[in-house]
Design a protein around this nucleic acid. Structure first.
Length: 458
RNA sequence: GUCCCCAUCGUCUAGAGGCCCAGGACGUCGCCCUUUCACGGCGAAAACACGGGUUCGACUCCCGUUGGGGACGCCA
């Protein structure tokens, strides 16, 4: 049987490096075995999925050089490759299970009569969980609740969509994060009830934050957006190489390798099962090697032009700096924030005469406000930040001062909103986050409180 | 809390019972090169979580403890 693997990202946010990591493993496994690598968009969350996010994810993965053989953009024999366009199959399956008494309606607390469809799971017994990376996994049915198959909005959940689509697309190997181990019984039960052969499962360890506890990589704690790394000036081949390095190092000791070399030598079965910390220090070192070893100065200049020294960026930066320029030479210092990854963040500069802990909270709230923007435009940023300062009862001028410093390292710089837009959402939020941690951060407990009120407002 | 998973230097890893008083890489420190810095070269410090087994022999196998992570959503 031809090997078929897939990456099934959910288009609900920034392109995540964890997605890229799993895409790499799926890609490598398929290539190594002469099979096909499929990209399927798992847009089953109607409220959070966006086309913008989908486009960003596809663009990022392509930027990294992970070409898929079948997908929503390139088509293929198992089209469509967008879950929302194939919900009929899921609904049929759900109805069939309902009719056969394998599933039941759950009206929950909905008074309007809308219901979800849940799969009936056994009450007793224990199920063996086949995993190609681990030995003898199992779980008591008692600890597995009845999964929702079809939500009351008529959309399938991941559990259903995933199984149905993997079956219909003839996926042979599901290589996914180990966060799914707990859900494996539900998926296996579906395969069994439907009379389908389940694929092989490989649950790969999650990438971790470089924090004290090594929690799973999250945007709250680390830069996780592939866009961030691109904008910070990392090369796609370096990022991809780094991701590969987390899974495999060659015996000869050389850690710089191409995608092809990774495909050729990497053995999924020998993957280390401990979650690797995403260490940006090593990534930076590797990136430096690519810059030094693979490009002559002329090519490097081309890289720079592609990165930020293009006409559009230069013109936008010039426009922002212009009112503050007396000589052309003033441009360098004024616009340096657009052409650097690191900006100075001195806690005293950031807080000024204000309370550092309070400023840290402002930065956190600003970060969330910007994160929620559907469109990252000057006007949208302006409105969001003004609304936030009003809700805090702080004058906008006072509120934005620390933001300037967070962005540029200086209180006197180019206009804030325009600068944010030019820097882009991922980079802007990263700088706010770094400034926040320079200020001592926001205590976890307080962050939860703020999150609750933030959620209510949103 | 319940269930599940994991465990080699600070970090990424090599190690598939003797080759290991544990190898490489990042980071750190020192020296060299050098008009500075960086690069490069050389070197140093730095780990088998702990306790029991099994075995002639355990980093490697088994059990327990501890630690960490993940899942407990009509999110994926």
């Amino acid at each position: 049987m031809t090997v078929r693997t897939r990456i099934a990202p959910s288009p609900t946010g920034d392109p995540h490096v964890g997605t890229a990591y799993q895409a790499l493993l799926n890609y490598a496994y398929a290539r190594k075995h002469g099979g096909a690598f499929v990209l399927r968009v798992e847009d089953t969350d109607r409220a959070r999925s966006t086309r913008a996010s989908e486009a960003a994810i596809l663009r990022s993965l392509r930027w990294l050089g992970l070409a898929w053989d079948e997908g929503p953009d390139v088509g293929g024999p198992f089209a469509p490759y967008r879950q929302s366009e194939r919900i009929e199959a899921c609904r049929e399956v759900a109805e069939r299970l309902l009719g056969g008494g394998k599933a039941y309606r759950d009206f929950g607390e909905d008074a309007g009569g809308a219901y979800a469809i849940r799969l009936r799971t056994p009450e007793t017994g224990r199920i063996a969980l086949p995993d190609r990376l681990r030995q003898d996994l199992s779980k008591d049915w008692e600890s597995v609740d009845d999964p929702v198959l079809l939500k009351s909005d008529g959309f399938p959940t991941y559990h259903l969509a995933n199984v149905v689509d993997d079956h219909l697309m003839e996926i042979t190997d599901v290589i996914r994060g180990e966060e799914w181990i707990a859900s494996l019984p539900k998926h296996l039960l579906l395969y069994e009830t439907l009379g389908w052969d389940p694929p092989s499962f490989w649950h790969v360890p999650l990438l971790r934050n470089n924090d004290k506890n090594r929690t799973k990589l999250s945007k709250r704690r680390s830069p996780t957006s592939i866009d961030f790394y691109r904008q910070a000036g990392f090369l796609p081949e370096a990022l991809l190489n780094f991701l590969g390095m987390l899974a495999w190092t060659r015996a000869e000791g050389e850690e710089k390798f191409t995608l092809d070399a990774f495909v050729e030598h990497f053995e999924l079965g020998s993957l280390s099962l401990a979650g690797a910390v995403f260490d940006t220090e090593k990534l930076a070192w590797l990136n430096g090697r690519y810059l030094r070893e693979d490009y002559d100065p002329r090519e490097l200049a081309g890289l720079l032009r592609n990165w930020r020294f293009d006409d559009h960026t230069l013109e936008a930066a010039a426009g922002l700096a212009q009112p503050r320029m007396r000589t052309l030479g003033d441009f360098g210092p004024l616009a340096s924030l657009f052409f650097t990854d690191e900006t100075p963040r001195d806690p005293d500069d950031l807080a000024g005469s204000l309370e550092p802990s309070e400023v840290a909270e402002w930065l956190l709230l600003a970060e969330w406000a910007l994160e929620d923007l559907p469109e990252f435009t000057g006007e949208a940023v302006h409105q969001a930040l003004r609304a936030l300062s009003e809700s805090l009862g702080v004058k906008l001028r006072k509120f934005t001062r620390p933001l300037y410093v967070a962005l540029s390292g200086s209180a006197s710089s180019t206009p804030l909103f325009g600068s944010m837009v030019l820097l882009g959402s991922a980079m802007t939020r990263m700088r706010l986050r770094r400034a926040r941690s320079a200020l001592g951060g926001v205590p976890r407990r307080r962050e939860k409180e703020l999150e609750t009120t933030h959620r209510q407002r949103a």
